[in-house]
């Protein structure tokens, strides 16, 4: 049986941090570390989770943790794993927690290299869909239509013009041993995936949607609900890639209302009917592909 709220390690390894109230990223980091335990060595590049976790001398990780360069999460994980292995130490888990910018933009090359070498590391991308720590700039994981400080909503351009990069399938296309998507709105699914990943040798990648109340323009108590809703309305999906096969873990019987999901967030409030139709169309196309190429479980 897999872990759940009752059986999860009671210790806390990410505590007293300075993330905003209701931060989805901090929830993802906290839960992953409860699954992985004290023998995990966490690497955090520049981004919110390092900024809120290491305010010297306030150090909020109860396990070994280190800040990497913005681009270097995966290469530092590689070095940690190789260094400990060289010393004959084997009972540890090298785990990275990088943002969407740190993963899909600046850190992509290092991550691709690590997967290519099949280094024995776990890379977790907490995706809050923008560069939050520097004040909400667009990344390649910002969804279509979202207002950020570099994709403002005005008369002519209504937020981000580009669709969200398909990071999960880009990683899977390397032929990685294990990759998965997740959401802080479905924590039991995330727990299962972290636990599974920790038992696989080679490179593992988990991409978790982690809403940011500050950047998304939602109340602090809505983080978990909105992370559930993005899955329920079909704009995100829970899946795995293993042994060369794509698996869909969760298939909503009927999608909830996309417009309702969008209009709850101030970053989408400017969208027109037409924009919302565009978003629905791209969702339907995505699900056509998912239904065709992904096995259900």
């Amino acid at each position: 049986m897999s872990l759940n709220a009752k059986t999860l390690n009671e210790e806390e390894f990410f505590y007293g941090h300075k993330a905003c109230a209701g931060c989805g990223g901090s929830l993802a980091v906290r839960i992953a570390l409860k699954v992985l335990g004290e023998r995990s060595i966490a690497v955090l590049p520049a981004g919110c989770m390092s900024a809120v976790g290491f305010n010297f001398p306030q150090l909020c990780f109860g396990n070994n943790a280190i800040i990497s360069t913005f681009a270097g999460t995966a290469s530092m994980l590689t070095g940690i794993e190789a260094g400990l292995r060289a010393q004959g130490i084997t009972d540890f888990q090298a785990v990275g927690f990088a943002g969407d910018g740190g993963t899909a933009d600046i850190g992509l090359q290092a991550l691709s290299g690590a997967i290519d070498r099949n280094d024995d590391i776990l890379y977790i991308c907490y995706d809050n869909e923008a560069y939050m720590n520097t004040g909400i700039q667009k990344s390649s994981l910002t969804p279509f239509g979202a207002k950020t400080t570099t994709t403002p909503a005005g008369k002519n351009i209504r937020g981000n013009l580009r669709p969200k990069k398909n990071m999960f399938e880009i990683v899977a296309a390397h032929g990685i041993p294990y990759a998965a998507t997740a959401s802080v709105g479905y924590l039991n699914d995330f727990i299962k995936k972290v636990e599974k990943a920790s038992k696989i040798r080679g490179t593992k990648y988990i991409h978790i949607i982690a809403p940011c109340p500050t950047g998304w323009g939602i109340p602090t108590d809505e983080t978990v609900n909105i992370a559930k809703e993005v899955v329920d309305c079909g704009l995100w999906y829970l899946a795995e890639y293993e042994n060369g096969e794509y698996i869909l873990n969760h298939k909503p019987k009927e999608f909830s209302d996309v417009e309702e999901y969008l209009k709850k967030q101030s970053r989408f409030r400017h969208l027109t009917e037409e924009d919302i139709e565009t978003i629905k169309r791209s969702r339907d196309l995505k699900w056509e592909a998912l239904n065709k190429n992904f096995r259900n479980n």
């Binding site: 009671e10 505590y15 109230a21 209701g22 901090s26 929830l27 839960i31 109340p213 602090t220 983080t223």
Partner: peptide, 29 residues
Amino acid sequence: CYLHCPDGVIYKDNGKVAVDYDFCKGCGI
């Protein structure tokens, strides 16, 4: 509530739960 608290400040207490108010931010999740 313990599972979903981003700050991990809810803890098990005799079959129920309690809050570490030193570190709770009042997010309401």
